[in-house]
Amino acid sequence: MEQFFQQLTNGLAVGSIYALIALGYTMVYGVLKLINFAHSDLFTLGAYLGLTLLTSMSLTDRLGPVWGVLILAVMVMGFVALAGALLDRVAYRPLRESPRLSAVVSALGASIFLQNTVMLIYGARLLVYPSNILPKTVLHLFGLDIPLVRILVLCVSLIMMTGLYLFIQKTRIGTAIRAAAIDQGAARLMGIDVNRVILLVFMLGPSLGGAAGLMVGLYYGQVNFTMGWGYGLKAFTAAILGGIGNIPGAMVGGILLGVIEAMGAAYLSFAWKDAIAFLVLILILIVRPTGLLGERVAEKV
């Protein structure tokens, strides 16, 4: 039983990271109907930028761990949001009127480009985050030993997701985003600048992805330039699991996938851990392509 709860908390923490990344996929898909393959590499970029800023500016030494990490997170999210906006401008905006599959190829190219940019700048070896930033405290809850970091990761992710959800549901700009997701043409007629909405989506999603990258760096302590590929595919699986285009769906899907994966690794086979997520993806697409919370009916063609 102890192992079960350990795996459950572990799965919840990893799952909340998947959920954060999945939000970026699902928002872009919601508005543009495009799988933004490069999103996973923006996540990697976030992890590396976090490392650079952390070591070059020694924020945590000057401001203490709490404020240091907070400021660091804000900076990383800002830079990755800029990168996201740039990505949209260069790789996707010229293709708005093209067939959708051209944009998919462009996304794939952008992903390869970004991944190799990171590799050429930082090198192909894995880099290590300083290990003295997050507390190593282990909490004793209900007779379990749970690292504090795990709970922090879960809480921070939940706060960010709730923030995004409220922003999308309650504000004027959020309403514009939802309108553009439902019908771009009608939204344009109602006076919404759809291109600006898309730009905003390409800043919001990647900033959350960048934050997730930073969290992975701090949580696991190491980053490498291909890390985005695995996380990205799993996050995308999470988005589909919850129903792509659906923001609460991405959150539920991410956390669910994290737990499924942790349980699978513990009780089925650790070596097949990575295959479990892909199996879930394939099964979901065959059995219920709209996902768990998907309300929209999949197009026939």
């Binding site: 293709l95 944009a103 190219g109 952008a110 390869i112 480009f113 940019t117 050429l120």
Partner: peptide, 15 residues
Amino acid sequence: ARMLVFGAAMVAMMI
């Protein structure tokens, strides 16, 4: 830099 050029070429080609 081979893959870098490659990725950029894919984007440029689509545009």
